[in-house]
Design a protein around this nucleic acid. Structure first.
Lengths: 223, 223
DNA sequence: TATTTCATAGAAGTATTACTATTAAATTTG
DNA sequence: CAAATTTAATAGTAATACTTCTATGAAATA
């Protein structure tokens, strides 16, 4: 099985990039170091010029892979959700009890992320920090509707709809399965952000996790 | 009472601006037209140069009021939360039943916004759209901790803590009052965003509102 | 072996952004 | 009315967000 896992590739919509960064060493270095840099200096200060300097390559070469840094961010967040979706499907597909399944699903998306050696150029814990701090910027734009049409957010949407299906299976009469699903996915990120920067606005800390908060919330709501 | 209301001014932390935009005609024009422009072209494309051109004033004059466009955004969102807080306190302070009070509070923050003639230079419905589409960018930055220390987000935090207090009054044993409060405030904005751009990710539409979703969610959770 | 292609690097250029500084005119205030 | 303050206008700087063009070396193909 380990062998099987090693051939897995997270499939990202080809509209997002000009050239697949997984197709070359330079592409993989772009991904690897963009994660490190965005985490380090933040998305606003991050530029292709700075990235080029760090990976010993030229700005113009990076533009061969991504039209601009916004698309790179869309790529990174898509990859993250694709990776999480894989974990989710993998770890819940054998589960029979729908309640346990949903519990596990909430666990997966709210867990502290640990490194996955399958993708050696991607630092998943840092990428998850980027998703918490920056991913909203990938859709809070004037271009969101065009980009949505072009499939930029397909993986994320599929993720929400998986939650929606699990919610509806447990409580078919519940009126807001999609809203609850999207609230959990967005809310988990938000609670992690608050924990780090606005601790008075959350009860999540070392003893209580966003996962526990949302598990409690969801099951009380569906009872 | 109308007279009383007309003297109300939303108090914004003076660290956010260089010169109080409420103190002059130019300042008020900056606020008025920045709301129109940011709604129109989005925060990324908005610049002080463009704003100057529209209000018939110079870029450098605008810099006398705000250090940069980020601080202007912080100002606008603070103003919005201050204005909503005023509505909230005003319309709930005479209420005795804590459940009705919380219900009303959720209503206030999730209502469709209508214009308030008390503040003639501020278009509240457009401002609320800006809060939905852009306000996350005001805190998802590398400078968030410094700015938080400088009191940039005081009004928003007070708003969350008002909700927290109402939640705790109803359910003193509930373990996550702050998290629930922050989830409602952030979640309402997110559901409005989804309704406009990702309708498959929400059940909110013309017949079901974010307010109904969160009222249902909160009261089931606190039961 | 020669040739074509392909990816990358590097240099240079453009338009715009995000400011800062200076000065002069207009306006407000004491 | 004089002094102080505010605003407008101009100019300038460094950085950003690209684009374009050329050179080079490696790999694929003829």
């Amino acid at each position: 099985m380990e062998k099987l896992l090693q051939t897995v590739k997270i499939a990202i919509n080809a509209n997002i990039y000009l050239k697949d960064p997984e197709s070359s060493e330079l592409g993989r270095r772009i991904i690897e170091h963009s994660i490190l840099m965005i985490d380090d200096i933040g998305f606003e200060s991050f530029t292709f010029k700075k990235l080029g300097a760090v990976i010993g390559s030229n700005e113009s070469s990076i533009y061969r892979y991504f039209e601009n840094k916004h698309k790179l961010l869309v790529y990174l967040t898509s990859w993250y959700w694709g990776w999480l979706e894989y974990q989710l499907v993998f770890s819940t597909n054998s589960m029979a009890d729908p309640k346990e399944k949903l519990k596990r699903a909430i666990d997966i998306v709210s867990q502290t992320i640990v490194e996955d050696s399958t993708f050696s150029h991607i630092n998943e814990p840092l990428l998850s920090k980027i998703v918490v701090n920056e991913s909203s910027k990938s859709f809070l734009t004037k271009e969101v509707d065009i980009e949505n049409k072009d499939g930029y957010f397909t993986i994320y949407k599929r993720m929400v709809s998986r939650f929606e299906a699990m919610i509806s299976e447990i409580a078919p009469q519940y009126e807001y399965p999609s809203s609850l699903a999207s609230t959990v996915l967005e809310g988990v990120l938000h609670q992690y952000f608050l924990k780090d920067h606005f601790p008075t606005l959350t009860n999540c800390d070392t003893s209580k996790t966003p996962g526990q908060f949302f598990t409690d919330l969801v099951f009380k709501t569906l009872k």
